[in-house]
Design a protein around this nucleic acid. Structure first.
Lengths: 207, 207
DNA sequence: ACCTGAACACCGTTCAAGT
DNA sequence: ACCTGAACACCGTTCAAGT
């Protein structure tokens, strides 16, 4: 409560607000992130924040962009193949977002802000480069994203519990690893028999 | 606003409250479900609801249990194999929960209320019966659940949009079908080479 | 330009009454 | 037992001031 409440001598900044929001997000999760809490963390009136940030939603988006900024750089086709590359990417997304409980789950449900058009294009390009049919690439990318963000949402409560060593337990990581391998195997199979079993443009899969 | 606001002549009942909550959930999604809205839908004071229901969270759980009650019956190993059975189950879970935007995503993040111990045991039993190693069955079940609930969360916003025919579009169902097939393929591969690549009790997968 | 204080329109929920 | 009315402790946010 009384930690870091140094007396404010300088003007409040956008970066300072963002840093405070990220700190609170890690500590308490999105459900406890309030504009009033951010302000109090900064030793300032709630309305002071509004002079630098439009509203709560844009603060959340700011936090999300900050966290996943470096992650978008990690998606590229390396020499060791698309499976290893995708595995690294999914693991790194989880690693980055899992410490911020509730954040990812919240944005997953927003219209389609979660995945920016840029990330979407990157991902589709990745799967096309990996040899997936053009019509299949968006489906494959969306599948991988859906799994990993679902996993992060399910793991959200792990951080909420008051005891220590929250995400280190073997439970969460075992599930994550198993799931990522299943995703890779599933995509590999669908990539191989793409022509015979799945006609994506018709909207009906063969049974 | 003025629909169904018949004059109350009978006593309020738990079932009536639940029905109103489900109606509002379908119409506006969880984010707009408030105790006050439920009360107003029933033509009653907000606090009247509290005489029949403990709090908002238990109302949400009540709604969820009602929706997924019949779904838990659909998970059993049929004659046409575990893949067909699991596909039917995942599709039916999506079909049931997709019309209630936000509900599933909310419960996914709660400690572990989302999946009741009973459903958990059913699922593990299913995968053991399907020939998965005992140590692998919980991971496989959790993977399938994580995907389908993630998919439902991602699709939550589709219902929120004001235009008609919300979940009928080919987009959502194509993604769902592709994902379910990927899940099935992924699990099948992991089931087959379970002994060689994955040692689940050690907590570290071979790389 | 940057911040404060009071206030508004919401929440979930408690509590003291009414019938 | 069943419901109402007023109120409390929160929200996000607006608006009129202060410096």
């Amino acid at each position: 409560l009384d930690v870091l409440k140094r007396v404010r001598s300088q003007a409040l900044s956008r970066e300072e607000i963002l840093a405070a929001a990220l700190r609170l997000l890690r500590r308490d999760g999105l459900s406890r992130l309030t504009m009033r809490a951010v302000a109090s963390e900064l030793g300032v009136t709630p309305m002071a924040v509004y002079h630098h940030i439009e509203d709560k939603d844009s603060l959340i988006r700011l936090a999300y962009d900050e966290i996943s900024a470096s992650a978008s750089g990690t998606l590229h086709l390396d020499e060791d193949g698309w499976e290893a590359s995708l595995r690294r990417y999914l693991m790194s997304v989880w690693e980055r977002l899992a410490p911020y409980p509730g954040l990812d789950g919240y944005l997953m449900e927003q219209p389609n802000i979660n995945v920016s058009p840029q990330i979407m294009r990157f991902g589709i390009q990745f799967f096309e480069d990996a040899g997936f049919a053009p019509a299949q690439a968006p489906l494959a990318w969306s599948f991988a994203l859906t799994y990993i963000h679902g996993r992060i949402s399910v793991d959200a409560h792990l951080r909420q519990s008051p005891d220590a060593a929250p995400l280190q337990g073997p439970g969460a990581r075992d599930h994550l690893r198993y799931g990522v391998e299943a995703v890779l195997h599933g995509l590999r199979v669908l990539r191989e028999d793409a022509q015979t079993t799945f006609h994506s443009t018709t909207g009906t899969a063969r049974e």
